[in-house]
Nucleic acid binder design. Structure first.
Lengths: 128, 128
DNA sequence: ATGCGTGCAAACGATTTGCAACTTG
DNA sequence: CAAGTTGCAAATCGTTTGCACGCAT
């Protein structure tokens, strides 16, 4: 049977407080800042376990993998600079998606839009 | 200026023919089966480049990363066995999403639903 | 008391990179 | 012809793992 440990609560807390979308390495640093004696392997094990439970999700960015714990928004990523913005959709698209899959047991739904952010429009035209 | 090479066309072709959602290693094997003299680094460089263009997308499954080139469907992944199913939503949710972001230059939109597939329902209850 | 979770450091393995040869435009 | 791309193998570095100890149940 799986146990709930102090470390898991602490890592969860750090991830929840963190407004950005940290990579595994960044998360490890954040955790170690606040709780120096948590080992890196524990952070990695935490993320794997909580992803498997559908509590933490990995964002499918084209570059580094980033993690988030918050499901009330969606994401836009710029393929040029890699920046990820939170996006709050007007329509409740997630319900719409989940309704059409109502025969399945759903844990979470993520929507990722990729494109070019305003800052990168010029740079992007040149590169391509 | 970026060039279009024989190898890139061949890798694209393999990925397009491939109905599954291969990992990088699987894709490399598929490519080498058909075009034995394409190097592994070339496959990796192809995927990175085409992702950056928004042509290939990475599916952020909770376990291995998988790649797809086809944007006319969405994905459901079972967090128990890791299997990824293609999902065709009735409503045109993607348009709905993209409409609410119409100030941005969009390349692609992916929706990933995670949950438990029918085959795993029992197994999952036990584990948790 | 039992056995799962942790922390450390070592092992692993997927991905990246340097370079000479080759292609593309 | 010049510059970008490839293929190979080696280097890199993020992630996983083995093990002894600590802690949750």
């Amino acid at each position: 049977m799986e146990r709930e440990t102090k470390q898991q609560k602490q890592i969860y807390e750090v991830l929840e407080e963190c407004k950005s979308h940290p990579t595994l390495l960044e998360l490890t640093h954040l955790v170690k800042e606040k709780y120096p004696n948590i080992g890196q392997a524990t952070v990695y094990r935490f993320v794997r376990r909580y992803m498997k439970r559908g509590i933490v999700m990995k964002l499918s960015s084209f570059d580094e993998d980033r993690y988030d714990i918050n499901f009330n928004h969606q994401h836009f990523q710029c393929v040029c600079c890699g920046k990820i913005e939170d996006v709050f959709l007007k329509n409740d698209v997630v319900s719409l998606v989940e309704d059409s899959l109502k025969d399945k047991k759903i844990l979470n739904t993520q929507i990722l839009v990729q494109g070019i952010c305003d800052d990168c429009k010029e740079k992007y035209e040149e590169e391509m």
